[in-house]
Design a protein around this nucleic acid. Structure first.
Lengths: 221, 221
DNA sequence: GTCAACTATTTTGTATACAAGAATGGTGAT
DNA sequence: ATCACCATTCTTGTATACAAAATAGTTGAC
């Protein structure tokens, strides 16, 4: 058996939660999971404990683990914080980016454009992540990069909802261009503003998010 | 035996790390810890895994757990992010605070002043935490509050270093007054600026931090 | 004397066993 | 028929056992 089973299990279970296979509120039975992954309860417990530490599951003493249900307000709050962290990353990137960051960002932008032009939602979804990670990296703050990556990952399922909205891809791409322009020009304030705007759930997007969340909820009922 | 031994163990070990009893780089031997706390290895492992999930310890496969040593740059980056998160909390607090937040903030400020006037560093250190938590609460964003609290806690040992610097308490108190003024006036931008300024490690404080870190390192050598 | 290789010991990782608390089902009383 | 209380069952939490990997110590060769 591989050296670090619980690490892989943690990723697998995390994935099941983020993809929605294990839906919010669902109880995660240890023996059931152990059976599914062909391991004993020990590494399953270790994986669940790690997930509880990062807030994906809640462990109620003697009563098992359940997938945390953030609820609409909490999801909104998470986007609020994400917007601010990305804004910060953009501002730092504008000041600190180097040649390799510049090319990484431009290449990511290019790929986003290709995906948008050929109307490939899934591909855009992926290239969008690459783009944002390029901004994080350009901030040259390892800690900020980690925080952004972690929260970005956690918001994945909700962002996926939003991309389905009509024309969102075109708007998103235009915003990306604005962000790149500001960052590469070294304009920290403009980068901050454009990223905050890009990530924030404001105006129509708030309604879109809520209706998406409700759709998610209904589907699992 | 209590229902949730590993939860308590997690807190105890976390405390030992934050107080410096377990210093950065130290190897955390499972059987040794098990002996110290009179439990088996199982709950110790569960505690360590949770601590690794929040970044306090690093678990190298098959090679044990060590206390993470952030290093000066990483600590600086953490303060940078903390400043931005607190600035955000301040801005939200300025817009969203209610009557109970107002009185909580004013009371916390009052207590900080008392501590500063009687020159009680330890008491100021404590009341300062209460003050900042009052700001987080006034933001009325549960997620942001959690993030702030968690990072604040993690930066505790380093903040303690900084308070020892001459006159820091007086300066800090004056900054608190400025923050309160902005928040209670509902001036989000002013609140953002003053909190960013208050938390950030800039100018002289950077040198203070680095020298403090070096002193810490020497002490354990 | 130093370096390398092999063995022994220690230590981690996973499985299993056992104990204690929660959920569940059934029986009896009202 | 409904509710309460008790027993049974199931699940979690902790301890122990065992296997595999890493480290340390020792011996031998150059």
């Amino acid at each position: 058996m591989s050296a670090n089973t619980h690490q892989k299990l943690r990723d697998e279970i995390e994935n099941c939660i983020l993809t929605g296979e294990f839906h919010p509120g669902e109880r995660l039975d240890e023996v059931q999971l152990a059976g599914r992954f062909n391991v004993s309860r020990t590494p399953i417990r270790e994986a669940l404990l790690q997930l509880s530490a990062i807030g994906l599951v809640e462990i109620r003493p003697r009563r098992g683990a359940i997938v945390v249900d953030p609820g609409p307000e909490r999801v909104f709050e998470m986007f609020e914080v994400m917007a601010e962290l990305e804004a910060m990353a953009g501002a730092l990137a504008a000041r600190r980016h180097q040649e390799q960051d510049r090319s990484a960002i431009l290449e990511a932008l290019e790929r986003c454009q290709e995906a948008a032009e050929s109307d490939e939602t899934d591909r855009y979804y992926y290239e969008n992540e690459v783009f944002h990670r390029a901004i994080y990296a350009a901030s040259h703050s390892g800690f900020l990069e980690e925080q952004c990556t972690s929260l970005h990952r956690r918001l994945r399922p909700y962002r996926r909802l939003q991309l389905r909205v009509r024309n969102r891809m075109t708007v998103s791409l235009a915003e990306h261009r604005e962000i790149v322009e500001a960052v590469l020009a070294g304009d920290a304030d403009a980068a901050r503003m454009s990223l905050r705007q890009h990530v924030a759930v404001q105006g129509d997007r708030f309604g879109d998010l809520v209706s998406g969340l409700q759709k998610m909820e209904r589907r699992r009922a």
